[in-house]
């Protein structure tokens, strides 16, 4: 096994309430909650996964979804190597917003950025396929046109969440042992810990729940 750790800076973008924070929570803590404090500005979390015998450390920047926070986004996608653009399969508007984010990243971000288009909340469709407002084919088509990875996920059931991150990890060139930076061991913090600025003051006993 390769002992080198590759750090991947990844940013989550998408309309409010599509489940960005929930996807991260599922990926990082394998947890889900209906209500969570809104993300103020951005939250930062890390998670390590093993991909093909290599350790990849995801440094995840979870951004606020409210429209007006969009002007802060460049601060967070700066230098990011990967992005998840999330939409809600039951909300057509969120898919339009996803298109805008794709354009924004293509125009403004790192050219080599690996972008995954993620249609979240497919769990809602289990009982009622009528709820679906964005066809899978639509998402696939957009992803193909723009050269993106595509997944339909459910942060609630965990469907495809880890797969999305792994797929991104696989597309990013890994570091060899020699490249390892001495500072990438993450000694001070447990990688599984969610560090959420917005919650830091009130972490105790919160029944958090996020719809975004």
């Amino acid at each position: 096994m390769n002992s080198a750790v590759t750090s991947i800076k990844l940013v989550l973008l998408g309309e409010a309430a599509v489940g960005k924070s929930s996807i991260v929570l599922r990926f990082v803590s394998n947890d889900f909650s209906e209500n969570k404090e809104p993300t103020i500005g951005a939250a930062f979390l890390t998670q390590r996964v093993n991909i093909n015998d290599n350790t990849v450390k995801f440094e995840i920047w979870d951004t606020a979804g409210q429209e007006r926070f969009a002007s802060l986004a460049p601060m967070y996608y700066r230098n990011a190597q990967a992005a998840l653009i999330v939409y809600d399969v039951t909300k057509p508007q969120s898919f339009i917003k996803a298109r805008h984010w794709i354009k924004e990243l293509h125009e403004q971000a790192n050219k080599d950025m690996i972008i995954a288009l993620v249609g979240n909340k497919v769990d809602v469709l289990e009982n009622n396929e009528d709820e679906r407002k964005v066809a899978r084919e639509e998402g696939e088509k957009l992803a193909e046109e723009e050269g993106l990875l595509f997944f339909e996920t459910s942060a609630k059931t965990g469907l495809n969440v880890t797969e999305t991150f792994v797929a991104i990890g696989e597309k990013i060139p890994l570091k060899t042992a020699g490249d390892q930076e001495t500072d990438s061991n993450g000694v001070a913090i447990s990688d599984e810990q969610r560090i959420d600025l917005a919650n830091s003051g009130n972490a105790a006993g919160q029944t958090a729940g996020c719809s975004c």
Partner: peptide
């Protein structure tokens, strides 16, 4: 990124940061 830590201080007037 300093602002990731300081932005909520200013925006929510330390309410989300401190007890």
């Amino acid at each position: 990124q300093l602002s990731i830590i300081s932005l909520p201080w200013f925006l929510s007037l330390f309410f989300t940061s401190m007890p």
